[in-house]
């Protein structure tokens, strides 16, 4: 990765408008990191990132909720339309609640052994990685739309969404890992008496990934249905039963054991 020197680096200036903002986010990694490092304007940047996360996740959620409509399943039209709205609300809630649950342990564990960042910097960094996740999700919306339009299988679509979320989540976490490393290296100015810059160790990242996945999957399970099983009545939330992992295995079985 090309790293501009601290002198030449500029701070991030998000343009107005949601699309331009998201475009700026994916284009200007270095500037965003510089803002994070200098702790400048982070309150404003975080609010922009929040809006990007909500809109992008809602976009993907709407496509996810539209599955029944696109597949032409046996449900009546009203629940199909309602599902679009419900899932468009649920998807941002899923991402933001995951973030809220994950922030405290990540901040504390990083403060103990990782890079020296303030809580505001850490929140902004996690917001940025979540906004990246949401943007990648939204970029996959056309793919999900196409598969919903051309497939009749509920389980296949469900697995597809699990895969897309997994992919988007790993891109977001990868972004966080890269940024944290760069910020940690740059944060320690040479005139300070601090010895070597303290980077966040690799095993800690690994722990965070597991934490994210664990929280995210459980939350997704609590908030289901997202797609809506065509044989069931419309409902905003389902009864608590089973768990995420069993359900994925069930869907894999029903995709592979047909006929």
């Amino acid at each position: 990765m090309d790293m501009p020197s601290p002198q030449s680096a500029e701070v991030a200036r998000f343009p107005k408008g949601i699309w331009k903002g998201a475009d700026y986010l994916i284009h200007h990694e270095e500037q965003l990191m510089e803002s994070l490092r200098r702790d400048s304007d982070l309150r404003q940047i975080s609010s922009v990132l929040l809006v990007i996360t909500v809109v992008m996740a809602a976009l993907y959620g709407a496509v996810m909720g539209a599955t029944n409509l696109l597949q032409g399943s046996a449900l009546s039209p009203m629940p199909k339309m309602a599902m679009i709205v419900v899932t468009a609300v649920k998807a941002p809630v899923l991402l933001l609640l995951t973030l809220a649950i994950v922030v405290p342990p990540v901040y504390v564990s990083n403060a103990f052994v990782g890079a020296r960042l303030s809580s505001r910097q850490m929140v902004a960094l996690l917001m940025a990685s979540m906004a990246i996740t949401a943007t990648v999700l939204a970029s996959m919306a056309t793919v999900a739309f196409f598969f919903a339009l051309t497939s009749r299988s509920y389980h296949f679509i469900k697995l597809l969404h699990v895969l897309v979320f997994f992919y988007a989540g790993s891109v977001g976490l990868g972004y966080m890992v890269r940024s944290l490393r760069v910020i940690a290296v740059r944060a320690e100015a040479p005139d300070k008496c601090a010895a070597a810059p303290r980077c966040t160790p690799r095993w800690l990242f690994f722990g965070w990934v597991i934490l994210y996945m664990f929280v995210g999957t459980q939350l997704a399970w609590v908030l289901r249905p997202f797609v809506g099983r065509p044989t069931e009545k419309f409902q905003i939330f389902r009864q608590r039963s089973g768990n995420f992992y069993e359900s994925v295995l069930d869907s894999m079985e029903s995709v592979t054991e047909r006929k």
Binding site: H27, V136, A138, S139, M140, V143, Y175
Partner: peptide
């Protein structure tokens, strides 16, 4: 190509040549 374009574009910005 049309279906994949948004995903390609975002990936290209994050990891590629922007």
């Amino acid at each position: 190509l049309a279906v994949c374009l948004p995903a390609f574009y975002v990936l290209n910005c994050l990891w590629g040549s922007r």
